[in-house]
Each structure stands twice: as C-alpha cells, then as structure tokens.
Simulated assay, not measured.
Amino acid sequence: MPHDLFGTPVIAAPMAGGTSTPPFVAAVHRAGGLGFLAAGYKSVAAMQAEIRTIRESGARFGMNVFVPDPAQLAPSRAALAGLEEYRQRLRADARRYGVELPQLRLDDDDEWRGKVDALLADPVELVSFAFGLPGADVVRALQRAGSAVLATVTTAAEARRAAEQGVDALVVQHASAGGHSAAFLAAERQEPQPGGSGGTTAELLAEVRSAVGLPLVAAGGVMDAAGLDAVLRAGAAAAQLGTAFLRTDESGARPLHKDALADPHFTRTSLTRAFTGRWARALENEFVRDHPDAPEAYPAVHHLTAPIRAAAAAAGDAERLNLWAGTGWQRAQSGPVAGILAGLLG
C-alpha cells in the first residue's frame, strides 16, 4: 500500500505562504519525488487555480488544508485581553516601519468549508490536513470522491485519534521540523520539545507505529540520504522534507529567507508563537527574542504581525521576518530541486 499511495520515498512538504508553488511541486515530481501544494492562507479560488496549473504540468501532487480551531475563533475574555496586550507590545515594531497594526481579527477559518467542498467537487489524489482532524464525515466524503486522506500528528495519542477517523495514512511530525507544529490535542499544544517521548524522528515514528497500523510519513530533521534511510528503516513509508528544499531555485520562499538560512549570523532555531500565535520553529532573530511570551491565538496573531512581516521583507530586514527552519537548516543547499532529489535518492 505505501508504494501505491506515494510511489516515492521523498515527499516535499506543503509550505504555506508562497513556498510550495505549482512550479516547485512540478519540479519535485520531475525529479522523482511527490510534492504537496498548500491551501493555507489562500482563498478557495486561489487554491483551485493552483490545482488547475499543476494539472496542466502533468505532475502528481497532493493538497494540504489547515483545520480551524473553534476555540481560537471564539476566544475567552482572558484570551482576548492577552491578545490586546500583545497588540500593544507590537506597537514598537510597527513604528519601526511606519505601519499600522490592524484591529483584532477573530473570524478567519481559512475558508475551511469552501475548500473542503471544492475538493469534493473536483477531487485530487491526496489530501492532507494539519492543525487538527477534519472529522470522520469529511474523511469518508473525500475517500468516496477518490482522494486518499492523510492527517498530521505529533504524538501516539494524536495518531490514535486520527486513526479513529478512518484516514489512509499519517504524517508524523517531530518537533525538529521547521515551521508550524501540527499538534492539536491540548497536552501536545504546550511547547513541543525535541527530547520528549520521541527523542528523534525515528524514535517518535516507532512510538506511533506501536499505536496504529497505518502507513506513516516521517517529518522533521530529514536533510540527506542518511536521514532518509534512518526513517525508512524505522518503518516510514516515506519522509516529508521542507527545510531541505527551502533554498532551491524553484522554491517560492523569499530570497531574504533563503539567504538567512546560509547566513552564519543565525546560530540556532527556536520554537516561537511570536509571529502567528501557534508554535513554529524558526531561525532565532530579534523578533523571536523580543517576544518570548506571545499568546496562543492562531490565526489572530498571524493577522496582527502581517504588516510588520511585510514591511520587514520589503526593507530586507531578516530580524523581523518569520524565518521558518528546522533544526537541520545549516545543511540546506541551494541549486535546482533535481540536485536535492538526486542526493536523497542516490
């Protein structure tokens, strides 16, 4: 089943915010991998346009969708007060660039229902979910439409919940992965620690394998052929890589982000909620250090910091930009996607 489902041991992670473009996913396909588009932060129409574009290329692909958290869309009075306090703390960053901070936005569910409906009406081969579970009814509907469904989990407990909904496979994300943590259970949404119950990606994979019998995709810390071999030997059907592809020619990441990954000025990654209100691993810069106590409030914080991040990018200021990166970022290589895949696949 794993070979039928993925057809390759290398999957390019869905990197929202403009990195996983159709040309990037097509390049991954041509080089022997499987890429996922990212529906996050896009309108339904934009998601559909990317599907049409990638289909024209003839590439195999998947689509990743964010699952909204009802609790974040209806915060308590205490949570609202924390958001307002954080908004005030961000004023100094906004003044730096002469931008205005927006009012709190609490109604953004990332067009959840519209995206699900669009994927039911025009099915794609693979649909993965992050930040939560879509519900057994959505899983069954997508499967009836012809899609294989993947859920992203960070622990064995989350894996069991996902398996109960009938998904076809799991993406097992270790805390060493760059970008957002996909954790969705309350205990797991505390600050993730790479040395937790799964000390390495392979160890976490073994823990999840003992809990469920589904095909598993390993995510987090895989940067080269040795890392790929380690998770495959641990029982993964494939590995999902993001940071390893960030600096490639076809990646849609900002040049500032690509350059920062190779800049010796940055010496570590940190887990931070400063940019979006959800734990995410990024290169530690001034913004991360200045805001260690950002509230858990996604995507409200994402909207608050958006003008600051946009202004920092325009100014070429990497110290105020969300520089997502996994713990293996120093091994990320520039050049064509094909070169990265060749090194991974041998």
Rank of each mutant, 00 (worst) to 15 (best):
Q143N: 15
G179N: 07
L120Y: 09
V167K: 14
V25T: 07
S251F: 11
G328H: 14
D293G: 03
R278L: 02
A79N: 07
D263Q: 00
A38N: 04
M15P: 08
G326N: 01
A156H: 12
L120N: 01
Q72F: 08
F24I: 00
A45S: 09
G343C: 06
V65W: 13
R96V: 08
R113S: 09
A300N: 11
V25N: 14
A162D: 09
P192W: 07
S251N: 08
T200N: 14
A236M: 13
K115G: 03
W329E: 02
P192V: 09
V67A: 03
E56M: 06
P9F: 06
A183G: 10
A313V: 06
Q193P: 05
A338F: 04
R209V: 12
V217E: 01
V212P: 14
V28G: 04
V10K: 11
G221A: 15
P215Y: 13
G62Q: 03
A71C: 06
V67K: 03
Q173E: 13
E250S: 09
T19N: 00
F275C: 04
A79S: 06
V127T: 08
T21G: 06
R273L: 02
G328N: 12
F275R: 13
A13L: 01
Y86H: 13
E191S: 05
P23N: 15
D290R: 15
Y298I: 05
V139R: 14
T243L: 00
T248Y: 07
L120F: 05
G235K: 08
A314V: 02
D224H: 04
E250W: 11
A136E: 15
D107P: 07
V301S: 12
A313Y: 11
D109R: 11
A13D: 03
V153N: 12
L345M: 02
N285V: 00
T155H: 15
L261P: 01
D263M: 01
A169G: 09
L283T: 10
G178K: 04
